[in-house]
């Protein structure tokens, strides 16, 4: 076992400090050290998108980022989407549109979709599908996820001009 490193970072707008081994991924640090288990591991090699978090102003698969790289950054996970007890419009849209079945991919989709709506306030179906193609869902066939994201876009940003 190697010497642990102290990491100071910001997670969901709160300052967080943790100790990790240099080889530990950000995903491991979030889940096993910080205790934020909402971010899920589906593959460990960056292909399923279940561990998607926001790091600074980009989205990353946290299984491919080292925990030490979080130092000085600002991270958003699924636990940081809602405002207190009020769900984020994307979260509400996923429920209203039955856009989850087993729910394991949902945290990653929510984070990715949130980033999409910040870049494209009114994404087309094609833009939505392209953006979300980094996230695998095996239950839904994506239909209801795409509809939920587009409904949330209207809820957040109003109808497209």
């Amino acid at each position: 076992m190697s010497v642990k490193v102290q990491v100071q970072t910001t997670i969901n707008n709160e300052p967080v400090e943790f100790l990790c081994e240099p080889r530990q991924s950000l995903l491991e640090c979030l889940r096993d050290i910080v205790g934020l288990t909402g971010t899920k591991e589906g593959c460990g090699d960056g292909n399923c998108g279940s561990c998607t978090v926001k790091l600074g102003d980009r989205i990353v698969t946290s299984c491919l980022v080292l925990g030490v790289e979080a130092a000085g950054e600002s991270i958003t996970t699924v636990e940081g989407l809602a405002h207190g007890s009020t769900l984020h419009p994307l979260q509400k849209a996923f429920l209203d549109h039955a856009a989850l079945q087993c729910g394991i991919c949902t945290p990653g989709f929510l984070i990715a979709a949130d980033a999409l709506l910040q870049k494209h306030p009114h994404p087309t179906e094609e833009q939505t599908r392209f953006w979300l193609s980094n996230n695998l869902c095996r239950c839904t066939g994506y239909d209801k996820i795409v509809r939920a994201v587009q409904a949330a876009a209207i809820e957040i940003n109003g109808a497209a001009q």
Binding site: L36, T37, E41, E79, Q91, F94, T106
Partner: peptide, 16 residues
């Protein structure tokens, strides 16, 4: 639903 969109739902790997 609320547990599953907020990350609170506990799956097997989440157990500590």
């Amino acid at each position: 639903g609320a547990d599953k969109v907020t990350g609170r739902a506990l799956y097997g790997a989440d157990l500590q």
